[in-house]
């Protein structure tokens, strides 16, 4: 029996090493399944919780065009959530169980959504920085070994690229607008820069999940590699908009061709992850409220469907 499992693991690894995708119904090590459920559900929860800070500004968007674009963007995030929950369901867990895990505090979501959106420029900053970081990460995940997740990433990345451009367009416009608007853009960059750097995960030396997920090609590059790619593409964008990155140690290394940032302050990151960020409580309260207040609606829909079914049976 043990040899069987070892043999299956060997074949599994061989398949991954040769670059083939693993599909839903194939044999996989239990820990591969668990790691994927953890990652995909965490990703889905991030989409859903991420709707809240952006949703904040739908009623206050400063033009009708911006309002429509923001509505469409937040709707896309809901769609991503739905799509990702479905991808996780292929691994044998249902959506409600995952939602319960989120509400019970057992599952995480990206800690960046525990920061508040204080001005309209924050909507630009989220699209530009948060979605920008997400794209870099997800482009990497799209090359991962689990078929349903990697295909979800391809599709999601396309929409995120659109959000990213819209976010940068907002920031660029503000940065080149009135002095008040420029101040708004710089302030948003100051507040969102470090959380965006941190959202790509702990540094490689600290990351406990990395070795196995890399071997199984759940992730194909380390957190630090992905982070550097994000920094290299974002710093010139900030400069092009006439904004400065809030890091006195930032410098361009001519030899390596990379932007080098100062030391990352991880204490706050871990504090926020453990629930002590500016909006952790508010975000979870909003999700809990939607769940509680939606209970009677879900019950009504189920009761009606049941009645309809029995009516149809009687008619037949």
């Amino acid at each position: 029996m043990t040899t069987d499992i070892k043999e299956m693991e060997r074949r599994f690894q061989e398949k991954i090493d040769s670059g083939l995708k693993i599909e839903a119904k194939e044999w996989m090590p239990e820990n591969y399944r668990k790691q994927l459920i953890r990652m995909i559900s965490q990703h889905a929860h991030s989409e859903i919780v991420g709707m809240l800070p952006e949703g904040n500004w739908i009623t206050r968007a400063p033009s009708l065009r911006r309002k429509a674009v923001l509505l469409a963007k937040v709707q896309d995030e809901a769609g991503h959530g739905l799509y990702l929950y479905s991808a996780a369901e292929t691994l044998g867990i249902d959506r409600q169980t995952m939602i319960n895990q989120l509400l019970e505090g057992k599952a995480k979501y990206s800690s960046i959504f525990n920061y508040p959106t204080l001005s309209w420029a924050d909507i630009g900053a989220i699209g530009w920085l948060v979605d920008g970081a997400a794209i870099v990460n997800q482009t990497m995940l799209a090359r991962g070994s689990y078929g349903p997740y990697s295909r979800a990433m391809v599709r999601i990345c396309k929409e995120e690229s659109f959000h990213n451009r819209q976010g940068y367009e907002i920031i660029y416009g503000l940065a080149n607008g009135s002095p008040e608007q420029k101040q708004m853009a710089q302030d948003a960059l100051n507040r969102w820069w470090w959380p965006s750097i941190q959202m790509l995960g702990p540094s490689d030396a600290q990351s406990k999940n990395s070795e196995e997920t890399m071997r199984w090609k759940i992730k194909v590059e380390s957190n630090d590699t992905v982070r550097q790619r994000f920094i290299d593409r974002t710093v010139p964008q900030a400069h092009a908009a006439g904004l400065s990155i809030p890091d006195p140690d930032l410098k361009f290394n001519e030899e390596s061709g990379h932007w080098e940032i100062g030391e990352i302050e991880w204490t706050e990151f871990y504090q926020v992850i453990k629930g002590h960020g500016p909006c952790n409580h508010k975000r979870m309260q909003a999700r809990q409220k939607a769940e509680n207040e939606g209970k009677w609606v879900r019950e009504a829909a189920a009761a009606y469907a049941k009645k309809q079914k029995s009516r149809q049976q009687i008619a037949a």
Binding site: I48, G55, A286, A290, E291, R298
Partner: peptide, 10 residues
């Protein structure tokens, strides 16, 4: 638009 993110299911 006020509903966005707060409905009973996705």
């Amino acid at each position: 638009g006020e509903w966005c993110g707060h409905a009973h299911q996705l």
